[in-house]
Computed example of a mutant assay.
Amino acid sequence: MVTTARPTAVLIGPPGSGKTTIGAALAEALGVAFHDTDAAIEADQGCSISDIFVLDGEPAFRALERAEVARAVAAEPGVVALGGGAPMDDETQTVLDGHVVVFLDVGIADAAKRVGFDASRPLLAINPRAAWTKLMNERRPTYERLATHRVDTAGRGVDDVVTEIVALVGPAR
């Protein structure tokens, strides 16, 4: 009999919300694996997401992202963290249906402290604060619609956020 793995939780949110940091800590707290789709794409492609954007363009990156998210949600047990833009894709939204999706919400002040709005964030490279605010205004309705749970990470420590998420999602299956 073939079984497919199912994530305990899928984390979504804007850059700086803590998807990678909180995801790793959450996976450890639940005793499950952690999978970051952005890191998987970089490992598979042998270059950074910024380089993919520059060399191949955003549409090429989004195609890689769409494929990796679909694969990860179908095959990765534990906690899966998606890139900030992944949930904007219609196919990805369909893939997320029926999964426990946690929207890690954050304000710009905390996001700026966490990511520094440097050149490694291609969509935030020019006027990062304005770009982040615009992205968040565009993405928030989708994040909220897809979320099973919304957790505010602003001004909070990793352990505090992880404790809240564990209480929401329960033990690993």
Rank of each mutant, 00 (worst) to 15 (best):
A70F: 01
A24S: 11
E42T: 14
R140N: 07
A112K: 12
P7A: 12
G155Y: 07
L96N: 01
E91T: 13
P171H: 12
P122G: 00
H149G: 12
G170K: 13
L104C: 03
V100C: 12
T8A: 10
R121I: 03
D90T: 14
V54E: 11
L30G: 12
T3D: 09
H99P: 07
A167T: 09
T163A: 15
G18S: 02
T20E: 05
V69H: 05
A75S: 15
G116N: 09
T8N: 09
E138C: 03
G57T: 03
R6L: 01
D105M: 01
A111Y: 02
D51C: 04
E28S: 13
V169F: 14
R140P: 01
E144I: 00
R150W: 00
A130K: 13
T20C: 03
E91M: 00
V10E: 10
V32W: 07
D56Q: 15
E144V: 01
E65M: 10
E138A: 06
L146P: 12
R62G: 00
A75M: 04
S17F: 00
G84K: 02
A130Y: 06
V80A: 14
G107W: 00
D159E: 15
V106N: 02
L104Y: 01
G84W: 04
A81M: 03
K113G: 13
A24E: 13
V100Y: 09
D152E: 13
T92H: 04
A40F: 08
R140K: 08
E65K: 10
R62N: 03
G170F: 12
R139I: 02
V101H: 05
S120Y: 06
G85L: 09
A5V: 09
F117I: 07
A72W: 13
A27M: 07
A112R: 15
G57S: 07
R156D: 08
E76T: 07
R114S: 01
I52K: 01
C47R: 11
A25R: 14
A147I: 00
A74G: 14
A167F: 00
E58F: 03
P59H: 08
D44N: 13
S17W: 00
S17A: 05
G13P: 09
G155N: 06
